[in-house]
Design a binder for these strands. Structure first.
Length: 565
RNA sequence: UGACCCGUGGUGUAAUUGGCAACACGUCUGGUUUUGGUCCAGAAGAGUCCAGGUUCGAGCCCUGGCGGGUCAACCA
């Protein structure tokens, strides 16, 4: 894809996080250093919601001359996998961000975390609880009722150290005991009621192998990792807001200087007509409602990439939607607008017929092939021109012909003259139908004087149609996508499963499409505008036998609106 | 019902330290056009959840309501 034209800059409004950072810098906090991190758990593919977070974290650092770490939050080996690690790195890079040499894993800190846990035990701030999960849970209380203290709460330090060492040594089965921070079972904040910080999990870890059979919980790892990496702003989503006191509590136990990372929460992205939770996306993949994580209908970054979205379009989208603590829903139309905007500027134009209707130009010489000049991108004169072959028999779009057209139909109909883009004016003389009365061919005549598309006598036509030669073309399969769900918020219905709203027509495969020869050497992911239709890119399923296109987005279509009324 | 968070056109965001609500998407008009695209011009649409209060003046401050969200995994 050509990236030659300058990227349109979306005006980024100063969001509340920028404002906080700005105030801290002018107050001299952290010596003016801004250091963020993007901390995905490698248990699934990244989606457009993560893109928002990536743009926020990397973007905030960039804005204030800071840097950003990539850190995998891999504290739960039972769910995590290197497959996800690889895809996440690919996606972040593809979006256009660089973490330099600062690639980290929470598992890098397992030794330090263990030592810190031991320190808490020695200070009487943590204890081993060997009650079963259910009992511990029942002692937690409820949001409105305080919890009860565990009978294990007052073990001696020596006892706790011994037990914890034996947990580490693998002497206990999974679920036999846990390490808990000793904070406050009566706290109005559930997360402060002696949270579990280590559990036994006899699963090999994708990085540490069999070294550990106990693993730290998220709350016991995240803030500490931030602290050790010198993170200044730990930006996360709203649901972690209630975790913040705990985050601060651990950092407070750990720190030996004035420095502490600050957790700031923002609202996660929701998009209309889709779902964004990893669990639900995983379900769509596992249960084959879509063809994998990178199915072009998925809101995953890999899906959007395969669909033909550009990194710039996603970054612009992220900038436009803003950052707040209001939990809202963004209209997908805004995302679609962002790709159209970017692709309009950079996409090579080409003509392609998706639903062909054969047209024979009866007064055009048989066997003649003319090479006509076509503009590659009217938005970018530097893109130049190309030749398009014209012949006696061509295909036009079936929708561009109507035997009995309504008032505002400008396209071809019996007796009417239209322009074939970059070619000639043609007039429809005859309609040929099959035994079912379906129109299968048109007989037209052309005006040789109108070569290139203009009439010397100044005669105007109302419409310009795209076309492809019947003999000089590339045959293609084209996959048309529609929204995956029929409901604006498929997972916001109390009693209806989101899958009930799956759109049965979200994918339509057309295998009788003809594209002008220009695309014959196109490579996977190359984007084109098929004039008058939309943006299409080459799917990786393309091989020597057939070229496959995905429709990224349709062009705005006023006729469709008129027709709809 | 405990704690924490949130409440501005249809949607998402703005509104300098309080000064007559702005931008984008969407919608609707019209113009240009060899893409019914792009582009250009314009319109409709909120009086800022409600009620009090402070003030010459409140979307911004105070009080009290109302509405919504999050939190009770050995997930993150």
């Amino acid at each position: 894809m050509s990236e030659n034209s300058p990227e349109k800059e979306v005006v980024i409004k100063k969001n509340f996080i920028h404002q906080i950072v700005e105030e801290e810098i002018s107050a001299g906090k952290n010596g003016g250093v801004v250091h963020t991190r993007f901390p995905p758990e490698p248990n699934g593919y990244l989606h457009i919601g993560h893109a928002k977070s990536i743009c926020l974290n990397f973007g905030t650092a960039q804005k204030f001359n800071g840097i950003t770490n990539l850190r995998f939050d891999d504290t739960n080996p039972s769910k995590e996998d290197t497959e996800y690690v690889d895809s996440i790195m690919e996606d972040v890079r593809w979006l256009g961000f660089d973490w330099g040499d600062r690639l980290f894993y929470a598992s890098d800190y397992f030794d330090k975390l263990f030592a810190f846990a031991l320190k808490l035990i020695e200070e009487g701030k943590a204890y081993v609880d060997d009650q079963d999960a259910e009992t511990i849970s029942s002692q937690k209380g409820t949001p409105t009722r305080p919890g009860a203290e565990s009978p294990c709460r007052n073990r001696t330090v020596a006892e706790n150290v011994d037990l914890f060492m034996r947990m580490k040594a693998g002497e206990f089965d999974e679920g036999k005991c846990v390490l808990r921070a000793k904070i406050d079972m009566a706290s109005p904040n559930m997360h402060m009621r002696d949270p579990i910080i280590y559990r036994i999990m006899k699963a090999p870890h994708h990085r540490t192998g069999d070294k550990w059979c106990i693993y730290p919980m998220y709350d016991f790892a995240h803030g500490q990792c931030d602290y050790w990496e010198g993170i200044t702003h730990s930006i996360c989503t709203l649901e972690f807001e209630v975790h913040r006191p705990l985050y601060d509590w651990f950092v407070e136990q750990l720190r030996d200087t004035d420095y502490r990372p600050r957790q700031i929460e923002f609202a996660r992205l929701n998009l209309t007509y889709t779902v964004m939770s990893k669990r639900k996306l995983l379900q769509l993949v596992k249960e084959n409602y879509v063809n994998g994580w990178d199915d072009p209908r998925m809101p995953t970054i890999s899906g959007l990439r395969r669909r033909g979205y550009t990194p710039a379009s996603i970054r612009n989208f992220s900038d436009r939607i803003g950052v707040t603590k209001v939990d809202g829903v963004i209209d997908v139309a805004l995302l679609e607008h962002s790709v159209r905007e970017d692709l309009n500027r950079i996409a090579q134009r080409v003509m392609g017929v998706l639903n062909p209707l054969k047209v024979v130009i009866t007064n055009y010489p048989e066997g003649q092939v003319e090479e006509l000049d076509a503009i590659n991108n009217p938005e970018n004169p530097d893109a130049g021109t190309r030749k398009v072959p014209f012949t006696r028999e061509i295909y036009i779009e079936h929708d561009d012909f109507m035997e009995n057209p309504p008032r505002k139909f400008f396209r071809l109909s019996p007796g009417k003259e239209v322009r074939l883009r970059y070619a000639y004016y043609v007039t429809c003389n005859e309609v040929i139908k099959d035994e079912n009365g379906e129109v299968i061919e048109l007989r037209c005549t052309y005006d040789p004087e109108t070569r290139g598309g203009n009439s010397p006598d100044g005669r105007k036509v109302k419409a310009t149609l795209h076309w492809v030669s019947c003999t000089e073309n590339v045959k293609a399969e084209v996959r048309l996508y529609d929204r995956l769900f029929t409901d604006e918020e498929p997972d916001e219905h109390k009693d209806i499963d989101f899958k009930e709203f799956l759109n049965a027509d979200s994918l339509a495969v057309l295998d009788n499409c003809y594209i002008e020869p220009f695309v014959k050497d196109a490579k996977a992911l190359d984007s084109f505008q098929f004039e008058r239709l939309g943006y299409f890119n080459v799917d990786p399923d393309t091989n020597a036998e057939k070229i496959v296109f995905n429709r990224t987005a349709q062009l705005r279509d006023n006729w469709a609106k008129v027709k709809g009324k």
